[in-house]
Design a protein around this nucleic acid. Structure first.
Length: 581
RNA sequence: GCGGCCGUAGCUCAGCUGGAUAGAGCGCUUCCCUGCGAAGGAAGAGGUCGGACGUUCAAAUCGUCCCGGUCGCACCA
């Protein structure tokens, strides 16, 4: 139980005593405005029981409780306001309980043991080789990274894995055009990058749009590749490594850490064998020349597992992939897939096929809605894809300018480091702050703005706190933390803004837990905004450095705790914070 | 046609699994840096929570039915 839950429990206990029957802590709520109180107890249900007016009950309870408030309790006073019993907490008592808890737990504050150390696999990074990396992939990477960290924080042992399409039609297109344009020799050493391949892929796509008769040539390349043609295979291996290198760079920049990378090329053969088995066991049948699994009984249509030309497809490989995962990691108790929600139906079918096969493993689909542009969805056909590289470069230039503007005296290195951190916050926070089930409309102008509810806004709150701490420690007259003072000094915190800040800190562990259980980093992002808002309110109302010695020491401890917890929140979103900005 | 998701201020979204006069940010109109950092703060205008029934002391929240948008429904991944 978190300290905040204990506080609520204590309050529920006091109310229970006054009411005469057990009042659950879940019956308490937060009033809509700070001024009303810190907690509230709606009196409707007991009013119904007692057949009395809820307002009268609230008033009566308030009188009863206020009458024998013990001096040591966390409750300052209670008040009946309409049908609600509003509870005002003692800022000092509350602060000392919560902040001591934060200080004792240190970096562990916010963590819980929901997962109980059990193992869980999280598949989330699925960019293909030989294709451009675009802002759509970004949402997946950012979401996955955050889920990785949040699930770890609530006690799961997370195995993060990625899955990449390194074979198939898109690869053939790319390799085909490369051959057309003179092969490897036509590309200078320094141009051998994933980005160039992505461009080549889109060029190939447009060319095929214009001249459909070329499709046969591409399919020829694909067949040769699958047959193991030495020349083309060498070309494939070489270009594949460019893409992988590019992914390495992007992953590194974003902080994405993957324990095991799966490739389609390694599950193609095993997948085909599984399809053979499905045919033998009668689960898969012939239909229109292809092999399908009929799922009509479950109202899931038909599931294609092999094309009529005998080649494999996504489904073929996914069958083998799931088995491979559990073979390699026999201890995993859940296997999660963070995938574009447009594939929800497909995954339902896939999971159903596993059930038919008797492969009953806890597979879960974590869908998120896709990234679109204000002008419509991105597609290679429309040629309106915003690539990761272009977007990143534009953002970085912008952030660099803004940083230079604010700090003309900084050297290059300092500017670069800070700007990069802000860049990551802007991009990631923007993608995480709304729930994953909602479409993310990518607006470059808006993404460039760092005012209001943005990642940099949260970072800014952190640096303000850091600045106070830094000035305090530089100050020679900094108070020594003698134990006798530290025991009681936190009681000196009594400003409403201090209390609100403490309450927001106190809620952090619960928020993390909920975000993890709901697989929804947005809930944590919302908390970060709330926290930053409270920090700014505190900053406005409370002067730390000018305060008398004991108060100042207490306030500094609040500042330190607030900073640490807010940093933890950002960390769980995958967002670093600068020391200064 | 069937199914999933969504519909809250001009725009982008919160709303803690049913509670008080529905909240932020952006944009708009004002104001605040000799102050612990203005990437900040304060104030104002702006709403029949898509619609209708129902459950309930209480519905943006739960249920049913409509309407609108979006995505998916066999040889792409």
């Amino acid at each position: 139980m978190t300290e905040w839950e204990k506080v609520i429990d204590d309050v529920a206990g006091v109310i229970s005593k006054a009411v005469g029957t057990q009042v659950l802590s879940t019956e308490l709520m937060t009033p809509p405005q700070d001024e009303l109180g810190d907690l509230a107890f709606p009196c409707f249900s007991i009013a119904k029981e007692w057949k009395k007016n809820p307002s009268e009950i609230a008033f009566a309870l308030a009188g009863k409780i206020n009458h024998d408030l013990s001096a040591v309790g966390v409750i300052q006073s209670v008040k009946g306001e309409g049908p609600y019993l509003n509870i005002l907490l003692k800022a000092g008592v509350l602060s000392s309980r919560i902040l001591k808890n934060v200080e004792d737990r240190g970096p562990l504050f916010g963590q819980s043991d929901v997962g109980d150390g059990r193992e869980l696999m999280l598949e989330y990074a699925q960019p293909n080789t030989h294709k451009e990396l675009h802002v759509g992939h970004l949402r997946n990477l950012v979401l996955g990274l955050s889920l990785h960290r949040i699930l770890t924080a609530i006690g799961w042992k997370v195995v993060p894995v990625s899955y990449h399409g390194d074979v198939g039609a898109h690869v053939a297109k790319c390799v085909w055009l490369l051959e057309e344009e003179g092969g490897l020799d036509a590309i200078p050493e320094s141009y051998r990058t994933g980005k160039v391949l992505g461009e080549m892929y889109s060029r190939a796509t447009t060319r095929l749009e214009e001249r459909p008769e070329l499709k046969d040539l591409v399919s020829e390349v694909q067949q040769k590749l699958e047959a193991g043609d030495p020349h083309l295979t060498a070309l494939w291996e070489e270009t594949r490594s460019w893409s992988i290198r590019e992914m390495d760079e992007v992953f590194e920049e974003l902080g994405v850490e993957i324990e095991r990378r799966y490739f389609e090329s390694e599950v193609t053969e095993p997948g085909n064998r599984i399809v053979d088995e499905l045919v033998e066991s009668g689960i898969a049948t012939q239909s229109e020349g292809a092999l399908i699994v009929d799922l009509e009984e479950k109202k899931l249509g038909v599931f294609l597992v092999r094309k009529s030309d005998g080649t494999s497809l996504y489904a073929t490989k996914d069958l083998a992939l799931a088995k491979l995962k559990f073979a390699e990691y026999p201890d995993i108790e859940r296997s999660l897939h963070v995938v574009d929600t447009r594939q929800a139906y497909y995954f339902k079918q896939l999971f159903e096929v596993f059930t038919l096969m008797g492969f009953e493993k806890p597979l879960e689909f974590i869908g998120y809605d896709f990234v679109t542009l204000a002008t419509g969805a991105m597609s290679s056909r429309k040629g309106n894809i915003v690539t990761y590289q272009d977007f990143r470069d534009e953002m970085l230039t912008h952030v660099l300018n803004e940083t230079v503007k604010r700090h003309p005296d900084w050297d290059q290195d300092r500017i670069q480091k800070t700007a990069h951190t802000i860049l990551l916050a802007g991009v990631k926070f923007g993608m995480l702050k709304q729930s994953r089930e909602k479409m993310y409309t990518f607006d470059p102008v808006k993404t460039l703005s760092f005012e209001g509810e943005t990642g940099p806004y949260v970072q800014y709150a952190v640096t303000r706190l850091a600045s106070i701490l830094q000035k305090a420690s530089a100050d020679a007259s900094a108070p020594s933390n003698s134990d006798s003072i530290s025991e009681t000094e936190l009681q000196l915190l009594d400003h409403p803004s201090e209390k609100q800040l403490v309450i927001t800190i106190a809620k952090f562990p619960l928020i993390v837990k909920r975000a993890g259980e709901n697989m929804e980093p947005a809930e944590l992002a919302q908390w970060c905004i709330d926290m930053a808002h409270r920090v700014n309110g505190f900053y406005r109302d409370v002067k730390v450095l000018d305060a008398p010695k004991a108060e100042r020491s207490a306030k500094l401890r609040l500042v330190a705790s607030a900073q640490r917890v807010l940093l933890s929140g950002l960390y769980l979103l995958g967002i670093p914070a600068p020391k200064e900005m």
